[in-house]
Nucleic acid binder design. Sequence first.
DNA 1: CAATAAACTCGAAACGATACGAGTTGGGTG
DNA 2: CACCCAACTCGTATCGTTTCGAGTTTATTG
Lengths: 321, 321
Amino acid sequence: MAVTIKDLAKETGLACATISAYLNGVPVRNYNKVKIENAIGKLGYIRNDYARGLKTHRSGTIGVLIPELSNVFSTTIITEIEERLRENGYGIIVCDCRTDLAREAESVRFLLSKMVDGLIIMPVSTDKKAFDIAVTKGTPVVVIDRMTDSDKVSHVVINNREISRKATERILAKGCRYIALITGDMTVYTAKERKIGYEEAMRKAGYYDETRVFNGGLCVEGGYAATKEVFRNHPDTEAIFVTNYEMTIGSIIALNEEGKKIGKDVEFTGFDRVEITRALLPATDTVNQPLEEIGKVAADTLVDMINGGKARNVTLEAEIL
Amino acid sequence: MAVTIKDLAKETGLACATISAYLNGVPVRNYNKVKIENAIGKLGYIRNDYARGLKTHRSGTIGVLIPELSNVFSTTIITEIEERLRENGYGIIVCDCRTDLAREAESVRFLLSKMVDGLIIMPVSTDKKAFDIAVTKGTPVVVIDRMTDSDKVSHVVINNREISRKATERILAKGCRYIALITGDMTVYTAKERKIGYEEAMRKAGYYDETRVFNGGLCVEGGYAATKEVFRNHPDTEAIFVTNYEMTIGSIIALNEEGKKIGKDVEFTGFDRVEITRALLPATDTVNQPLEEIGKVAADTLVDMINGGKARNVTLEAEIL
DNA sequence: CAATAAACTCGAAACGATACGAGTTGGGTG
DNA sequence: CACCCAACTCGTATCGTTTCGAGTTTATTG
C-alpha cells in the first residue's frame, strides 16, 4: 500500500494537519521541517492528488482536445501549454478527436468525468459547440485557433485574414500577378480566413481568380499534389502562397522536382517554423505564427479563468519573416 | 456545488450503496433502475472520478512520458496509444520532458502523484532509470523504443539493428559502395542500433568507413545540413541511408537543391511514413516502422500488466517497402 | 402457503488529504 | 520573570465514492 500522510505523521510524531500544512507551503518549525523531509525521503511519500482533489474540488489537470495530434501546429502549441501549465502545477490530459464531431463531444464528457479544472480546445466545428456541456457545468474553456460566437469562453487566435492579405500584397509588390494559393478545406476556420485575406489582396489588385485557389488538405502529400496541380492547371504561375507548415514542405519538394528554382523561377511564401524554412529557403518570405505564444496565452488565460477571471478574446499577431 | 450520489439517493429514496452498485453495473430492481436514471437525468449527475479513485486506488489515467512531442514518431504512437487506452476507459496524461534527465525524473513523480495506473515511457537514458520509482511503487511500466536491462518493466521495440542491416544490404546489392549513413546521436538507443546494423553490413562488404556516418540530430534541419555535408566531405557518395522521418525530409530537400536526382544520381533509403515518401519518391526504398502497432502493443501490454499480467518484451518487425 | 434460496438493499466505515477552530509554544517585553 | 502575541500544531469533520457484512425483499419449490 502506498505511503500516506498518516505514515509520515507516525514516523515524525507530528499530526497529519501539520504535515499537510508543510506540504502546502505553510511555515513549520525548522526541526519539524527536517523531520518531515527525512520521513518523506525514507518512506518515499508521494502525494495522492485524488484525495486532495476530493477535498479541494480541484484536480490539477486540464483537458486538451484537438482534432489531430500529428502536425506541427498542434504539437508545438501543446508542448508550450504543457510546460506553462506544469509550472502552475497542472497536468494535461490530451484527447485527439480525429476531426470527428461525435468523438469530440464524447471526449468533452470524458474529460469532465476526469474532473478537469479547465479545457483547452481546438473545435472541429465552430457552430456545433461540443464544449457547451463544459460551459454549463461551469468549467472554464479556452478555444484556440478558431473563433466562435460564444462569449462564455475565451478565444486565442491570430490575425489570419490580415496576415494573409499582407503576405499576398508582398508577393504582388514583387510584380507577380499569377499567384496560386494552397490552403485547406473551407470548413476549417483558419483555411477560410486565410483564403479571404488572399482574396482581398488579389481582388484589390484586380487579379483574383478562383481557379488559382487549391485545397492541399493541410498535409505534406496534399501540398505536394496541389503544387503539381498548380502548374498543370496554370503553367503561367509566378508565385505560390502556402498556408501551413506541412503543405509548405510538400510544396517545396514538388517545386524542386518540377525544376522550379524558388526565388528565381517562382516566388514562394510558406507558413510556420520559419527557423526551418529559413534554412531551406534563405531568400523567401514565411508567415510565422507565434505558436509558443498561442500556447502560452491559452494556458495563462485558462489559469486566470480558473482563478475567477472573465472570459476574454486575444488576437495574436503573426508576422512575415 | 456538483451533484453527488447522495443527491441521487435523496431524490430516489434509495441508499447511496444501491446507486453506486447500479452505476457499476450491479443489477438492481427494475423500478429502482428507472428511478435512478430519472434522477440522473433530472439532476445532471456526473461521477466524481476522484472520490472513486480514492476508494478504488484506480484513477483511470495512464501517464505517457516522452522526450519530445514534436516528431512523427511520438505523435503517431501517442495517437494510437490514446485511442487504444480510451477504448479501455483510460485517459492519458502526456508529459514531454524535452530530452532532459532531471525533467524526466520529475515528470515521473508528477505522474505518480496524479495517481496514474500505469506508465508508458520512452526514456531519455537507458541506464539512469527515471522509472525506477514507479516500479518500486508497484506501478506497471511499459518502455517503448528503448531497451533497458530491467526485467520489471515491459519493452516494446523494433528490430532496429536487423532492419538497418538489411536496408544497407539492399543498397549494396544495387552495386553501391560509397554509402553514407545519416543517423542521430550515439547516446540514443535507436540511433546506435541502426548505426550498428549499417556497420555490420558495410564491414561484411568490406566498405565500412566511419567518416561516412553523420549525425543529423533527428530533425529536418539536421538531415538537411548532414546531407550537404555528405557531399562536401565525400563527393563520391553513391547512396544515402537516413534513419528517421524528419531527417529524411531534410535530406530530400537538400538532395533536390544539390541537383542530385534520387534513384539516378544517388540511391536513397528513407525512414518512416512510407505513404508520404512513396508519393514523393516512388522508386526508392523506405524503412517502415509499424508505428501504430507499437502504440497498440504498448497500450495492450500495459492494460494487461495493470490487470496482473507479467512484464514482457516485444520486438516488432519493421519492413522495407 | 410455509420454508428456503436467491436477489437485492442498506448503513456505516473506509480511502487520503485539507479546513477549521482551538490549543500550545516560544521569544520579546516591561 | 510573568505575560502576551504571534507563530505554530493539533484533533476532527469532511470531500464523494465504494466496500462489506448484515438485513430485507422477492422468487421458487414441494
